[in-house]
Structures are given as C-alpha cells and as structure tokens.
Design a protein around this nucleic acid. Structure first.
Length: 775
RNA sequence: GGGCGUUUAGCUCAGUGGUAGAGCGACUCUUUGACGUAGAGUAGGCCGGGGGUUCAAUCCCCUCAACGCCCACCA
C-alpha cells in the first residue's frame, strides 16, 4: 500500500461512528473472507480449538440470554483465533420438539380454532416445519447480527438428515447394549398435551388445599386427593409403628369406603413416615410414584383410576366420566354424608407438578414407554464399538472394558477433573442431581421430533407362515431406521408412533454435529474438511451455556458422549447466569420485561451491547441488565472512536508493522509509563480470559483504554508531538498503543475495532480478526 | 427435609489478606482544539449483624439474619 493511499484513508474516518453502516459492511467482509471456517485460516493456525454452539430453539426470536451466550462464545473464539488456534465454532438450531409443537398448536387454535388432530399427523407436521423454517431464518440472521464468528458452512439442525442418522444409530446401539429398553412403568403424564414428560421438565408449584382425614375401617388416613382413592385396597403402615402393632402384614379387613365395602389388605412398609399424618396411608399405585414402588415391592395389584384425559374410570362408580377437578368436591360431599371425614386441615401446603413446557398438571400414569436405564451395567467403551474396534474408551476415570453404568461414568468424569465446571460449585449440584437420577423416559406422544426407530410386527406373532418350519421365527420388535421386511410371513412392520424426547438428540449434539456416526471410523486428525471434524475437534474445548440447563443438557451430553465415543464431550463447562431485569425478575415475554437484544444493538450498536453484557458479570451469577448500562458502553465506543480519530489525524506519514511484538523505543517518562501499563493490561487480559473471567478482562482493557491511553498518554502526546526530538517516535507509539488496544478489544467489540483497524497505516495488514494477538 | 448462592455508593453490580471500584443517577465546570451523540471533575460507603484467626479482615473460619435458587416419592 502506498503512503499516499494511506493518507487518503486516514481522513476518511468520519467524526461519528455509524454502527449501522459499519456493522453491516464488516459482517459481509468477514463472511466473504471465509475465516469463520477453520479450513480457510492461514498457515499459522494449527492447533484446533472448538466450541459447539448451544442450538437456540426454533420457537421465535433471539432473546437476551442468547445474546449473552453468543457474545461469550464469540469472545473465546476470537481470542483463540487471534492467538493462532484453528478455531471452529459450529452453529445450529434445535427443533425443541414439545416447545415447537405446542407453539404451533396454540397458533392454529387461536387463528383457526383447530387442533392437531383436525389436521392429522402428516399435515400438522408440515405446518410445524414451515413454522420452524421461518423461525430458523429469523434466528440465524439475528445470530449473524451479533457478530458471531461461527462457521455457517457446518450449520446443523437437531432434526436434519445427519442428526437423524445419529439419533437412529444411537438408539440402536443403546438398545443392543441394554441401555435402552421398553417398560410399563409409572411416568409423568400431561393430559393437556397428551404426552409423557421427563422428571426434569416438571415444575413444582405450591398450593394450599384442604387435607382430608378420612376413616378407613379402623384407621384414619390423610389425603389431599380423595378423587384418586376409589380403588385403594391396601392400607400401609410402618413395621415399627407400635400404634398399629396389632395389625399384621397381609391381614385382610372389610372397610366401608366411598362406594361401599372394600376388602382391604394391611401392608407393612418402611417407606411410611410415622410422624406424618396418622402414620397410615392407603396407596394408589397407578397414580403415584411412591405408591408404585411400594406396590412393586410387595407384588400388589395396580388399577387405573383416572384415564389419560383426566377423567374418572368406571371404578369410580357414579363419578365415572367426571373430570377429576370437578369430581373432587362431589366426592368430599359423599364422604361427608357417609360420616367418613373426621377432620379437614385447611393449612396444608401441597406441591403440584406441572409440565414446564407450557403444558398441564401432571397426572402420574402407568404406561409402556422407552427408557434409558441409568443403572444398567455395561462394559466401558462398548457403546463406541464399531467396525473393527470392539472397545474404545479413552476416559481416564473409567478403564476400557471396565464394568460400569451411565450414572457412574457421568459422575466420575467430573470427579476426575476430565470435565471442569465453572463456576466450581455447580459440580456439587451436578453430583447431587446424579445421585437422585432415575431412569430417563425418552418417548413422547407428540408428533414433532425424531420418530422412535422401532417397528412392531403386525399382526402380532405369525398368523400365516409361508413355510411350516419358519413359524415363530418372525421378530416381533425390530430396531431400525428403515422399515423392515418380514422374511417369514405376510405380516407387516409398523413403526412406533412415539417420538423421542428432544434432549435425546440434543445429547448427541457435540458429536453428531462433527460427523458421527458417518465419519466415526475414518476421520483423520490434522486433515482439513468436515469428514475429519470428529478427529480434529472432538472432544471440544468449551461448552458454554446457562446454568439452568446443566441437568437437561450438559448432563445428557456427558451421558451420550461417554457411552458412544468413550470420550468426554468437552473439557470445560462454562456456565453463565440468567439475565434479569432491573427488578431482578427473570426476563420473560409474559412479564413484558424483555430487553430485546436487536433493538438494543440498533440503538447503541452491537459492540456496546456485547461489552455491556460481559462487563459486569461473573460466571454463574445472574445478570441484571439495564438499558443504562448499554448506553454507558456506547460512550465507550465513542471514546475509542475519538482516540482513533486523534491518532490518525496526528501521525502524518508514520506507520508500524502489523505484528506489534516490538514496540517503538520509550524515550519520555510518559512513553515508559504507557508501555508498562500496556504490558500489564495484556497480561491481565490474557490471564483473565484463560480463567474465563471475561468481565475482568473487559474491565482491564476498558480502564486501560480510557484512563491510561486517552486520559494520560493522549494528553501527554499533545506536548510530545510539538517537540521535534520525540515527535516521530511519539507518532509511532500512538499507533502502536492504538493497534494493541484494538487487538485486545477485538473479541469484545469486533465491529468498531475491525473498522478502525482497516483505516490504520499498518504494513502487512490482514483482517484484524486473524491478526496476531498482543504478546 | 436437604443443598447452594447473594448481601459492597442513591440504583444495578464488579473486586481484593494491606489507601474501596465501574456504569447510571446527583452536583459543578467545559463548547473553533480527538470526543456536546459529549468531555473533565466533585460529593456519596462502619463492604448485612455478631464472634474468631491474623501485625493487618470487606476478603479466611464460625454463627445469626434477610432475600433468592436448585433438588427431594410426607400420602
């Protein structure tokens, strides 16, 4: 570049920073260079560094939590890219089965008064897909606007072809390995959405409701839910309870109950809390998980009382067909009239379970469902067996071939430090969750999602064998992505109508996005291209997400990855807090307190929004964001812009090299001071970023820029620029300090720094995003 | 019932074993000089209470309180 051209450019830096124009232009330039794709990075970028983006749901628009996630991850990626790593940040979106389906259901209900059943499965799914596509496009364009330097050529969707293949393969391997099985167990049933949900998706709400003390033969039992009690024929007490020592286990008694005499059986079980209520209870094994366990222990009968719509079954006699909500007061009336109610406690606090995904009140039901058995034993590494490799565990904490369970592995990889969780105290919370972990119900009765790859022989068994000796050889259940054909009879295979919990496919995310299972055996480390991603970028370096999905997602990824790859999915988990408003309320649409990130970035610039998000937040702490704060950071953009204008207007024909490793000599005291402070700042920013203390890094560079560079050195330089002895050196020093400031700030404020950089007289200049990080 | 977090300026939050920090707000000053789309400056704090360790505690330990979160099969 000729120096005359440089001069010309210098004067092009306008008096005000027009972020709208700059952001759009810079964004296009970045994407055109292709450097977001690690395969296109220059030679010096060798060592891989990878982050897989937590995929936003395709249920709407980007919210402030997404912006925080994108900002943090982009900072880490840009920092490592400038440090010379071969950085992959892989983006994607999540089909969010239940959330997306209910969103569309509510839209068609509002607009057309129709339900999904009016459309039928196929037509309804078309509607959902159209909605998802639309939402996806909006979200992707918004992710781009945040300045996210992710590789769109590798974009993934949890429900696309590659990911579907991964899900099918995963299901089959777990099924073959005995980790997944079908069972009739008690599950959380949502009568409103007509599906099961997992334990983690349940939200508990407290409610003050009457607590009834009811006569049950010689006993008094207490219940909050008399409407479930029709079939109660077991009366349970603690074996050590002396009040009831005259009753023996298995003893039969006739008791007068809601709809007449019932033959009751006494059961002694230590699960009963002697100090609660009367110490005696009747059980409803079909509709209560604790009762279910007791019944199983003693081999008792199970009887369904409530149907899947929440209505009472014929066992309820005269109340049959009534909805439980309406039936309760009527049943209480009847109990009263029969003189069975002894007293009513009006102060009882009851916890009710609701489906947190916009569903209804959970009614436990017994249903045949698919489960991931967290306590099933298997040999470590067997899940990754494929091709020639029989066993393949690379974990330090669990040896290849060692007998273990998913639960044990999930815990040990964190205990051993193979996965580090930041902030650390979440490790305890994680362990605690694992200790309480029960089998994971993965089948859902909704339509949008991965269809369970299981086929059942219809008609059941083998009615018309082609040859006599083949009779009975038909497989009743086949696990396969494709529809199987029966070789032995005319029977057909029909696919399971259920879909998989969305977290099942999310759990595979860190490796399904990198080419598993297609390239699991052929990927070669060090070779470019997507077919080698698994070898190059797995395990990933950092998983960054909100602490609220530690269990839903982080835990499931650890489960899946350790099983299928015999590796950890990531080395570090960085958990950020929840963004709250000035009243410390969680932002939500229903509360109307949402700070829309896009509106903020239009008002103050994306850079201001980004640095405001990280500036005052520590990992794991909730963030209270006010618009004032973003505005304050706009002032900082303004400051930086004007420093640059000053420097560029004063440096004449001076220029420096792009590699800022060697500063110009320090002649004056001010020179020495600024270089010393700069060195300190570089080292502070480095160590803070390495520790994931992004806010400390941001503060260090903010302070340096404003108070050391602008307030101090720029002021001093005005005198030095009039002094012929140091004039020329001062110019180069101003350029040098500005160059390093831009580099340090680039991960936080990529647009304005790239723009200023492009106007600077620098030899061998590249895009700032791939320049050498200050040393 | 367990577990965890928070408590610092008027507000929202950083932070450190040794003179307490930012943004916003308040007040004062400053417009041909990089920055009025603002800048410079000032005021404002027994760092939740009590106890302990230490030469020294806002920071480490104990305890209490308030607020918040997570987990849990008291029917």
């Amino acid at each position: 570049m000729k120096s005359q051209d440089l001069q010309k450019q210098i004067f092009e830096l306008p008096p005000h920073y027009d972020w709208k124009e700059v952001e759009e232009r810079i964004c296009a330039v970045w994407e055109k260079t292709g450097y977001f794709n690690p395969d296109n990075l220059p030679e010096r970028h060798q060592k891989p560094f990878s982050i897989i983006m937590p995929p936003p749901n395709v249920t709407g628009v980007l919210h402030i939590g997404h912006s925080l996630m994108l900002t943090i991850e982009d900072i880490l990626i840009r920092f490592e890219r400038m440090r010379g790593k071969k950085t992959l940040w892989l983006p994607g979106t999540d089909h969010a089965a239940i959330a997306t389906q209910s969103k569309v259901e509510s839209i068609i209900y509002k607009e057309e008064g129709k339900t999904r059943y009016d459309y039928g499965r196929e037509e309804f799914l078309k509607k959902v897909e159209a909605y998802a596509k639309d939402s996806h496009d909006t979200i992707v364009s918004q992710i781009r606007k945040m300045g996210s330097s992710c590789d769109w050529s590798r974009e993934a969707y949890t429900l696309d072809e590659m990911r579907s293949r991964a899900v099918g393969e995963a299901f089959k391997r777990m099924y073959d390995g005995g980790i997944i099985s079908r069972g009739k167990r008690i599950v959380n049933w949502d009568p409103k959405l007509q599906t099961t949900v997992s334990d983690d998706e349940i939200e508990w709400k407290e409610e003050k409701i009457p607590f009834y003390y009811v006569r049950y033969g010689p006993f008094t039992i207490a219940t909050a839910r008399p409407e479930t009690k029709f079939g109660d024929k077991y009366v349970v007490m603690h074996p050590d309870d002396e009040r009831y020592s005259k009753y023996t286990h298995g003893q039969k008694l006739d008791v007068e109950w809601i709809n007449g005499v019932i033959a009751a059986t006494v059961i002694k079980d230590p699960a009963v809390d002697m100090s609660f209520g009367t110490g005696v209870m009747t059980i409803t094994p079909w509709h209560d998980a604790a009762d279910f366990d007791i019944a199983k222990r003693h081999g008792l009968d199970f009887e369904q009382i409530i149907d899947f719509d929440g209505k009472l079954l014929p066992v309820a006699g005269e109340f049959a067909g009534a909805h439980i909500k309406k039936a309760r007061p009527l049943i209480v009336e009847k109990l009263k009239s029969k003189g069975l109610i002894e007293k009513i406690d009006g102060e009882y606090i009851h916890r009710i379970a609701a489906n947190s995904r916009g569903g209804g009140i959970i009614e436990p039901q017994i249903k045949e469902q698919w489960f991931v058995n967290v306590n099933a034993k298997f040999s470590a590494g067997s899940g990754s067996a494929s091709g020639r490799k029989k066993q393949n565990s690379k974990l330090h904490s669990t040896k290849d071939g060692e007998e273990t369970t998913v639960k044990e592995i999930m815990k040990s990889v964190v205990e051993s430090g193979e996965i580090k969780i930041i902030p650390e105290h979440f490790e305890k919370i994680y362990y605690h969750w694992i200790d309480n972990l029960r089998d994971w119900c993965i089948s859902r009765q909704i339509w949008y999602g991965h269809r369970i790859p299981v086929w059942y022989h219809e008609p059941k068994c083998v009615p018309k064998p082609r040859r006599e000796d083949d009779c009975g050889r038909c497989k009743e259940v086949v696990v396969s992505a494709e529809k199987p054909v029966c070789n032995f009879c005319d029977g057909e295979y029909v696919q399971d109508s259920d879909t998989l919990d969305t977290w099942f496919s999310s759990g595979l995310w860190t490796f399904s996005t990198l080419g598993w299972p297609a390239f699991a055996d052929t990927a070669m480390a060090g070779k470019p291209g997507r077919e080698n991603d698994l070898a190059n970028y797995h395990p990933t370096d950092v998983m960054e997400t909100g602490y609220d999905i530690l269990f839903f997602w982080i835990a499931r990824m650890i489960l899946m990855t350790t099983y299928f790859l015999g590796e950890v999915p990531f080395h570090t988990v960085y958990l950020h807090g929840i963004v709250r408003d000035a009243e410390r309320q969680k932002m939500s649409k229903s509360k109307g307190n949402v700070i829309a990130p896009l509106a903020m970035s239009e008002k103050y610039g994306t850079d201001a929004l980004r640095i405001a998000l990280v500036f005052a937040t520590a990992a794991g702490n909730d963030i209270s964001l006010q618009e004032d704060r973003i505005r304050g950071m706009k002032h900082f953009s303004n400051k930086l812009w004007n420093i640059a204008r000053f420097v560029l207007a004063r440096i004449g024909d001076a220029e420096i090299a792009a590699d800022t490793a060697n500063p110009p000599p320090a002649i004056t005291g001010a020179d020495r001071d600024i270089l010393k402070k700069m060195k300190e700042t570089i080292s502070e920013v480095n160590s803070s970023l390495e520790d994931f203390s992004l806010h400390r890094a941001a503060q260090a560079i903010y302070d340096f820029t404003w108070h050391e560079f602008a307030d101090t050195y720029v002021e001093e330089s005005k005198k030095q620029l009039d002094d012929e002895a140091v004039q020329q050196n001062t110019k180069r020093l101003l350029l040098h300090v500005l160059a390093n400031t831009l580099k340090l700030l680039h991960p936080f404020m990529p647009f304005i720094t790239e723009e200023i950089w492009s106007k600077m007289p620098i030899r061998d200049k590249k895009m700032l995003m791939i320049e050498q990080w200050p040393r």
